[in-house]
Design a protein around this nucleic acid. Structure first.
Length: 572
RNA sequence: GCGCCCGUAGCUCAACUGGAUAGAGCAUCGGCCUUCUAAGCCGACGGUUGAAGGUUCGAGUCCUUCCGGGCGUACCA
């Protein structure tokens, strides 16, 4: 039940009747409480286009609009805004309907989400956090709305790094089954690769052997992959991320398709040789695909030595997603530095017919994680921060606070609460910010546990649970109807009913921070309601209604946090 | 050089096809616990939205120029 759309449809029907042609009502949540619940801004623009007086048009629209059953008050304000206050009966009626406040879409799509995608042979670090967490939230939201979601973890398992590592281990006799060791070998191999051209050449030969299927090298490689993937899986489970080994669709999975991609491009006459490499040149608009000095920028699909690149793999992936998975939409969660790469890939895919006609290919870029100094987030020693260390720190800090605030709970409980708060705080800190910009990672702010943070939301939830415990109430058996009387009840009711429109917006635009903002508003409205309206001590009618509002709020907080991949606790 | 992104309160961030007096949190200051968890609520303070022009009933949002920052720009991913 999308409230906003409902209001918009009613107004647009009237608008069309008044104008003789359709026009958007541009309905938004009211910018101020005194304007009511929703405001419509579309009349002014429509009046201008049809050269009519905006206030008169607004009056005509309001006179014709069928709002009797939903609004208790409508008014025209300023140059032609229409302000709408929803009626108490309407709000109560919606909240009294059985079932959840969320209804699935009538147009389910098949949506591939390409996220997390770490390079293997290295431990996961903070650079992998945003893709993993945002992608996971998107997967959950789209699934909740009834879409068929295919998660794909496009791990990097096929690059030069494995050639270096294998060559280094074979030449030095080092070995280990521990990822931390492999990573340090890798670092040494990389140093040698950069310093010693002969070593570099032998490493490249190893890659060729690997890709040619040399059994011995293949076995070594397989073992590294297994070690890496099991580390990733541990991290996903700790983070509470949906990804499983079944979701791994590695770069190497497309290996056999790469020659076909190149020959398809060739057959369509899209390919050109340039400086020994096989390239697609895109026209693009203006300077979109121009490089240094205005030279056309190639998409290289095959290197002069015959090897393939990530562009080739990504094209093969588009083809696979279109033809085999029948995707209607593909969402890529990678950092913003790859924006040009994906613009190129999408353009080539379209030109070559690798994507389907109405298929939406979307790069959802995100910015870098910075330290408080505004530089890339690193440890004091200057190395990348490992994800496990980050989570350890978050839980330790959360535990200090739980110990201080809730000494009456036993240690097992305190540890469990600290785990949920710590992990939740890390995820929420990331999800609550507009993903496109760089964001500053600040321990103190993140775990300050006040303001727009996971702990604030969890606290609101535990307060509700506490009411049920205190009143010895089985919240699943509440049967009193909601009635909406107090202004705090009205505000809370409207907020609850905005869940649907919020999720639809997140799904469409790919910004989970809309959901965070919604939940923060919901928690804030609940806290105000909690302060303003006694619950357990109220008379029977109010008590029953308010308990229902509590139940709806708890359910929605839990569901919303769940869609962000954040757990809840019963007390804290 | 060219391209993309960004610049909002002391700090971290919002602002939904251009809408009403640019909103939150933190920090600072002041109120509110013998009543459902004070990790809370209420209030105060805090802004030339980097700068200058333009478009219009209306611009943080669109256009132009400039300043500042980040990233990308041919065989790494």
């Amino acid at each position: 039940m999308n409230l906003r759309n409902l209001v918009a449809e009613r107004l647009e029907a009237a608008l069309e009747a008044s104008l003789g042609e359709p026009a958007s009502a541009i309905v938004q949540p009211a910018s101020k409480r005194e304007f009511g619940d929703y405001q419509a801004n579309g009349v002014m623009g429509a009046a201008k286009r049809s050269r009519r007086n905006p206030r008169e048009l607004a009056e005509t629209v309001l006179k014709q609009a069928d709002l009797l059953d939903v609004a208790e008050k409508t008014e025209i304000a300023g140059p032609g805004f229409i302000n709408i206050t929803l009626s108490e009966d309407f709000l109560a009626g919606l909240l009294n309907r059985s079932g959840a406040l969320l209804t699935p879409t009538s147009k389910p799509e098949t949506i591939v989400i390409d996220y997390s995608s770490p390079n293997l042979a290295k431990e996961m670090h903070v650079g992998h956090l945003r893709s993993t967490i945002i992608g996971d939230a998107m997967a959950r939201v789209l699934t909740a709305l009834g879409h068929r979601v295919i998660r794909q973890n496009h791990v990097g398992d096929w690059g030069t790094q494995f050639g270096m590592l294998i060559t280094y281990l074979n030449e030095t006799g080092s070995d280990s089954d521990l990822l931390a060791d492999l990573e340090s070998f890798y670092r040494q191999a990389k140093a040698r690769f950069d310093a010693d051209p002969e070593f570099a050449e032998r490493s490249r030969q190893s890659v060729v052997s690997l890709q040619a299927g040399d059994p011995e090298i293949r076995t070594q490689w397989r073992r590294f992959i297994d070690i890496s993937l099991s580390h990733c899986q541990n991290t996903y489970e700790r983070l509470g991320v949906l990804l499983t080994p079944d979701d791994v669709q590695a770069e190497s999975a497309y290996n056999d398709d790469l020659p076909q991609v190149v020959s398809d491009l060739e057959a369509q006459g899209l390919l050109r040789d340039s400086e020994g490499a096989r390239c697609v040149f895109l026209d693009g608009s203006a300077n979109e695909f121009k490089g240094k000095g205005g030279e056309p920028l190639p998409v290289i699909v095959q290197k002069s030595d015959g090897g393939y690149l990530y562009a080739t793999t990504d094209l093969a992936a588009v083809r696979h997603r279109a033809r085999v998975l029948k995707a209607d939409r593909v969402i890529y969660l990678t950092d913003a530095r790859q924006a040009l790469h994906f613009r190129q890939i999408f353009a080539v895919a379209e030109k070559a017919g690798f994507s389907r006609p109405q298929m939406r290919l979307e790069h959802h870029p995100f910015g870098a994680m910075l330290g408080k100094d505004g530089k890339p987030f690193k440890t004091r020693a200057g190395s990348v921060v490992k994800l496990t260390e980050l989570l350890d720190e978050a839980q330790a800090r959360a535990l200090d606070i739980v110990n201080a605030k809730s000494p009456e709970l036993d240690e097992t409980q305190r540890r469990e609460i600290a785990r949920v708060i710590g992990i939740g705080a890390v995820k929420y800190a990331d999800l609550s910010k507009n993903r496109t910009s760089d964001y500053v990672f600040d321990w103190d702010q993140m775990l300050a546990l006040e303001g727009n943070t996971a702990p604030y939301l969890l606290y609101a939830y535990t307060r509700i649970k506490s009411i049920f415990r205190r009143g010895e109430i089985d919240e699943t058996k509440l049967d009193m109807p909601v009635s909406v009387a107090d202004p705090a009840e009205h505000a809370l009711a409207v907020q609850l009913l905005r869940f649907q429109e919020t999720l639809e917006q997140v799904a469409e635009e790919g910004f989970p921070h809309f959901l965070c903002a919604f939940l923060f508003d919901l928690a804030t409205q609940f806290m105000r309601f909690y302060e303003a309206c006694p619950i357990l001590s109220a008379d029977s009618h109010s008590r029953g209604s308010r308990l229902q509002l509590c139940r709806h709020t708890a359910d929605t907080l839990k569901a919303g946090l769940g869609l962000l991949g954040i757990e809840t606790v019963e007390r804290m």
